[in-house]
Amino acid sequence: MTDPNAKRSAESAAAMTPEQHQFREHMISVIPKLRAFALSLASKSDYADDLVQETLMKAWHHQTDFEPGTNMKAWLFTILRNEYFSQLRKRKRKREVEDTDGELINQLATPAGQESHLDMADLRQAMLQLPDDQREAIILVGASGFSYQEVAEITQVAVGTVKSRVNRARVRLAALLGMETDKINSAGDDSGH
């Protein structure tokens, strides 16, 4: 079974230096993770892919800035989140209002199992209720596989700040997802709800 990505990328790899080729291949391998990160940051999936697109363009144009052998994933994630936050600041200045109701559920990435669809919707909805810095922190630490130190570098804050953002995000998510309530109910509260 041939890998369609490898075939396609091989076609245009001919005129590149080995370094450029390696850079390209490495970048391609990170794209799915970049998308996952972008989707958790951005409320609309179209916008998430636009973010990835801009990130790839920036990365490509600055490929000489990237030191081979260093953390490409962290480098790309940093470019993406910087772009997201810079656009966010611009939007806030323009006082645009983003509609996150309704549309949101229709634009979720399709999950594997059927019953998990609701779970995914709940989780994404809950995530979008978090402040951006907390949402970013908990995804980077909890799902993307970065260390606290790496997340501190990507987000350009102290490790302690990352930790407190993650903790606040967890507490908030637990409440939003009703996990807190479930626990209270199962603790023997027979108030009937």
């Binding site: 892919d49 363009m57 990435a109 999950p111």
Partner: peptide, 20 residues
């Protein structure tokens, strides 16, 4: 689960096109 679900999807054509 949420993150991995997206991360295991293949690279969309639009990005391969862009790189090309």
């Amino acid at each position: 689960d949420y993150y991995d679900d997206v991360a295991k999807q293949p690279v969309p054509d639009r990005f391969l096109e862009l790189l090309r």
